[in-house]
Design a protein around this nucleic acid. Structure first.
Lengths: 347, 347
DNA sequence: ATTAGCACTCTATAGTGGTGAGTGCTAACG
DNA sequence: CGTTAGCACTCACCACTATAGAGTGCTAAT
């Protein structure tokens, strides 16, 4: 364990480095903080912290910068949620609230919201809607044997899938089936209905059976597609930090954001955990980008975690602030989705 | 006018520059092409072309590069669509065809398709669906007085909008109104129905009037929102070209792609024109990025232009190839949308 | 009109020396 | 024994210089 003074020095170095971006030498530490010791002593302490793996220096005649381990210690031990909470509270409340009524808009808005407040890139994984939530299923006959299936969830999300049947069906029949499903949906999920329908109908109405199968399959496909949506906001924010001010880094960054699927996988890993998680630099195995950290949280409807959200930025990011921003946004989004789900939208 | 030899030299310089990316000197021109004259003569010719504004050189001891005017002349006079058509035909046919059945997927796929073939960035503006095309309108009552209006167009595009009514309406009433609209829609557009409804109902069923107004308003909003969708594919492709290999250029590029609205405005300007249009460098007034060209076309359903598509890349892009790629893609997309519209999707 | 030759210009690259920030070590101090 | 002052040392960074090479424009000869 580190003694108290060493902790303070480590914190001072990391805070300073986060603020300035350039390596911290012993003299600036003496000037900016009051440890009551000389620069020589600080040099000794810093050498010790380096030996323990918390600090490093880019070259002999440069100041110290934190290692990933240093950041880890900083986040785990040196940031106190409670004390810093008020520090950013006011700032957050000044931000215009989210108001997108379309779910897509809301998500996009929220990702930009994250980005603006954190000065990093905001990422949100769309809420996964469980099939239990289907409120209404509608069939629309298009040309030929094409039928468009429309799914409406309780949260007002509309998804659709085009299918092609073997034989032509009249719109009236489709309407009848739609009414049947709507009624049944109040008793259970699509899977339940499917089971009951199989028992009940046997061979008397083959068309409905086929339709049910297609509907069921479509619903799965649609759900899959929806849950793969990733909203990225403020990607250019990251360009501003000098860490990425080289051509190669930028290229890598640009490509990383283009491959949304990888981001998705990355974010999904932390869906299970409660609270805010921080992945520092090399701790992101999937994200082959050097020098990136992620602060990840999730949002809920009731007690169910329905999606993940987070911020991606340089390893040298203002963690205190970012953690609070993510925390705040996750609660905000949970609240908004809750309202939408429970009582409807408040405009 | 340029005499024949000068034209050939101009073409040779531009072709070489497009291929190599570095300024073209008189000696390499002698080596690579057979003009039957010496480098000194070429120097004279190039000096002449420079005086006319087609070429320039970055500094005294460098070779020549084309000006925007040079490119303009090159595209207008030196590229012959017919002769070069076969050159890229085979290449295009080897590419896997598009197959997204969801309209969103199709557009995204097509934008990546453009990018892959042109090695630039592909941009597509979503098809604008005119209100005449509504096939079906559905109302779903959610919690409280919330009603979700779902619009289905003939092409199978599903759009939705959540509204909140002043008073509660039963789902049965909504269904009745939906059936009424469906029937009426066969006789005309939503605007027509609105007119007829106003005459017919007067005050007997105020609720329906309100609903109609809301529906009408929602339909306009939805249509607006949809037509603002811009699909960008392969944005990172542009990073590869050395023209943008500076930090500042990349930043600007990144930001430009983030502001989809500007891109939209830019592309929309050429919706009216038939065929492929090329905007070279400074000819893009809205696109404040230096050194960018656009090749823009549009796609149709029947004879109606419903959307715009194009490629954005460095001014030094392989125009011949890109023009053909855009042309090919616009026809492909028109065909696919036509099939969807006429007969349904072929998988 | 074309060409060979040549002086000139400018970029790009490598090398050089000075500067300053910061360290690590040693010896002195309380 | 922890702390401190002093000092030699290291290394990135910057400005400056020298050199090589590519390409031009001009002039005089063909």
């Amino acid at each position: 364990m580190l003694d108290d003074r060493n902790k303070k020095v480590l914190q001072a170095v990391i805070d300073s480095y986060i603020a300035s971006g350039s390596p911290i030498g012993s003299t600036v530490l003496v000037k900016r903080f009051d440890f009551g010791v000389s620069s020589a002593t600080l040099r000794n302490i810093m050498a010790e912290l380096e030996e323990l793996g918390y600090l490093t220096h880019p070259h002999t005649s440069a100041g110290r910068i934190p290692t990933d381990l240093g950041y880890r210690y900083y986040i785990d031990s040196l940031i106190s949620m409670e004390n810093d909470a008020n520090e950013f509270g006011d700032q957050l409340r000044q931000v215009p609230p989210l108001h997108g009524d379309d779910l897509n808009d809301l998500m996009e808005e929220a990702s930009r919201f994250l980005a603006a407040l954190s000065h990093c890139t905001g990422v949100i994984v769309a809420p996964s809607e469980s099939e239990a939530n289907y409120k209404h299923i509608e069939f629309v006959r298009l040309r030929g044997r094409q039928v468009l299936i429309i799914f409406v969830t309780e949260t007002g999300l509309v998804q659709n899938k085009l299918i092609e049947l073997d034989e032509s069906v009249r719109q009236q029949e489709l309407n009848a089936f739609s009414s049947y499903l709507d009624e049944e949906l109040q008793k259970g999920t699509l899977t339940d209905i499917r089971g009951r329908l199989i028992k009940k109908l046997e061979e008397e109405k083959i068309v409905f059976m086929r339709l049910m199968e297609e509907t069921y399959r479509a619903s799965q496909e649609v759900r899959e597609r929806e849950s793969e949506k990733v909203y990225i906001g403020g990607a250019s924010q990251m360009m501003e930090s000098p860490e990425f001010a080289t051509v190669d880094k930028m290229k890598a960054l640009f490509k990383a954001f283009e491959d949304k699927y990888k981001l998705l996988k990355l974010l999904e890993r932390s869906t299970a955990a409660q609270g805010i998680k921080v992945f520092i630099g090399s701790e992101n195995p999937f994200f082959e980008m050097q020098g990136c950290s992620m602060v990840v949280g999730n949002y809920r409807v009731g007690t169910n975690v329905v999606g993940t959200l987070g911020v991606i930025g340089p390893t040298r990011m203002p963690y205190k602030q970012v953690i609070h921003v993510v925390d705040y946004t996750s609660k905000l989004l949970s609240k908004l989705l809750g309202e939408r789900f429970q009582r409807g939208i408040e405009r």
